[in-house]
Write a protein that binds this DNA or RNA. Structure first.
Lengths: 338, 338
DNA sequence: AACCTGTGCTAAATCGATTTTTCAAATGAA
DNA sequence: TTCATTTGAAAAATCGATTTAGCACAGGTT
């Protein structure tokens, strides 16, 4: 009941192991194996249900056919969807994926990368968190195949793919402004990430484009590492001290969900009392009455593009490197809240 | 800049490769390596940053130190949390996890198991879906280490761990009945899974225990493979044709979410018009006003217990097998909806 | 002196594949 | 006929570890 090995197949087919290997790897012609013999080998391999021993192949070829996917939180819906698509796409190409989540812990990011290194993944797909810059730079230095998603470090020259944050916010803002709203707040976190800055830029630019004054007091920066309750309170204070606001733009879905809670506590009606738009969709936003309008991320597109970029790096016979920075458009989804 | 091998370390330390291997694997004493030599080897290995080549180790030892986790849907919150805890626990024990999701596709389940087999996972953690019975039986026949979670097949003798479904429903029902409600509906799916049956049994028993008649028309079985809209309609028809209902118990969170949508459409108020309890928590239930009361699954407990059971099987020197069937208590969480 | 017995380590086999090298037989050229 | 080539496949090296078998030497016995 033991595993069938290449040698066994060779014996069954009455040839040498190397011959079997050549045929099964499509190098039969090249190695001048007679079609007749090749056919016999194929048949034997087929009906004996032979499967090559992954580890042996890996050891010999130096390729693990495994990709490392590092995301912030595996239970977040954005990352979960991303992971799903990536897994599917990778499988299509004969790769598996091992996931790891940093759980927003910068330190853990480094460990993870090292851990994956030990495991010999052939390439990395990473949604970078603030503290991971050094480790990522190291990977680049070692010429490891690598693609960043969702964010990137301007200082590191590596391919990345993400939503066009600037344009996404613009879409949402245009809708709000188009409805005649002008007193629009913008809520963001204080982590210094490029995508957050881009979203802020989108907000500011949209206002300026429509000759609406940008008021600093309408921009709320919440601290990231903070008790949930504290954030709720700060958000509520913000809304109460700016009662004239007629719309609010949440720059992440995490913030949007906090927002919903505060809005419910304060008994505000959407969109009459306050119109709401949030960046990045979430299950809750579909269901929560009256439905929260969002900028939807092109998650599938991001995943597929990222895999493409990574595969391109993995191909030994790679031509000139593809475009490094890819921004995919987001999609504004209108629901009841705005 | 090449990878450091065992041989390199041996050369650096001035000993044979085997000696290095013994020392690094803690078999120095057993193999009578002098402490002095052992110390030197340790030091060299340490400061050279040597990491054994995983694939080589795997090939030689036959152990991949990898577990296969097969869940229904990686983006579901129950499964995502489960995956997270399992990953953490596995890592603590020196194992990695490769995930796969069947996405509720019975056929895919079989393929996945085979795929993992090819990859040589040392053991399986599976949340079984209806169509996977045959494949799981095969794994058992091949004596593969295996633990089922969340559900199980009565016909297959293998360890499993899940919430006590019967008791969980009882807790929720007791609360409803305690509030004086008697006309309680029960919504379930028609897939033939043991946990669904147990939940139904809990519903029926709770009613009987309190001498409340069990009416068949209060039990709704929705078909699983169905358009979302169709299910919504059927659910709405059900509620409209039983206007006297004062409470409803959803047997899964998927159903509960559908329920929320219907209840919102019909303009019903929770809990005045209809009290709602749902089995299995979800982010939405915390946030959706007035908060949905749920039976919370002991996800961490399930994950940890499952890993324990699996590790026990993986230990060659296993004593008598631990208890096979483990049921962990769920927890009723009271929110505004009931 | 010849014979065991530990001690402390090294040499070699092994895991299961891929890949390079080798080699006999068939064919072709001179 | 003889030497060079080509054909078709087997043999052997290799990947990087683990593990079994073995070997030299010191010390103790009879």
């Amino acid at each position: 009941m033991k595993r069938l090995t290449l040698k066994d197949v060779a014996k069954l087919a009455g040839v040498a192991p190397s011959t079997v290997s050549f045929v099964l790897n499509g190098k039969g012609k090249q190695m001048r194996i007679r079609d007749e013999v090749a056919a016999r080998i194929m048949q034997v391999a087929e009906k004996s249900g032979y499967e090559p021993h992954r580890m042996a192949v890996n050891l010999r070829t130096g390729q693990s056919k495994t990709l490392g996917l590092i995301v912030e939180s595996i239970s977040g819906s954005f990352f979960a969807s991303l992971a799903k698509t990536i897994e599917t796409e990778a499988e299509r190409r004969g790769y598996n994926v091992v996931y790891c989540s940093t759980e927003n812990n910068a330190q853990k990011g480094g460990e993870l990368i090292r851990m994956l290194g030990r495991q010999m993944v052939d390439g990395y797909l990473i949604t970078p968190a603030p503290g991971m810059e050094k480790e990522i730079q190291q990977l680049v230095n070692q010429h490891k195949p690598l693609v960043l998603m969702d964010s990137y470090f301007p200082s590191i020259k590596t391919p990345y793919v993400l939503i066009n944050n600037f344009d996404g916010v613009q879409q949402g803002m245009k809708h709000l402004i188009g409805r005649g709203l002008t007193k629009i707040a913008f809520v963001m976190v204080d982590v210094k990430l490029i995508q957050i800055e881009e979203r802020l830029r989108g907000y500011v630019t949209a206002l300026k484009d429509h000759k609406i004054p940008v008021k600093k007091k309408y921009i709320l920066q919440l601290q990231y590492h903070r008790q949930r309750e504290d954030s709720l309170r700060e958000l509520q204070d913000f809304l109460e001290s700016n009662p004239e606001l007629d719309a609010i733009f949440f720059s992440t879905n995490y913030l949007g969900i906090l927002g919903l809670e505060v809005i419910a506590r304060m008994g505000l009606k959407m969109p009459e009392d306050l119109a709401v738009v949030c960046f990045d969709d979430h299950d809750i936003f579909r269901l929560y009455p009256p439905g929260i309008s969002v900028i939807e991320q092109p998650i599938e597109g991001i995943a597929k593009t990222a895999i493409d970029l990574l595969m391109h790096q993995l191909d030994k016979n790679n031509g000139p490197m593809k475009k490094q920075a890819i921004e995919l458009p987001g999609k504004f989804i209108l629901r009841g809240s705005a």
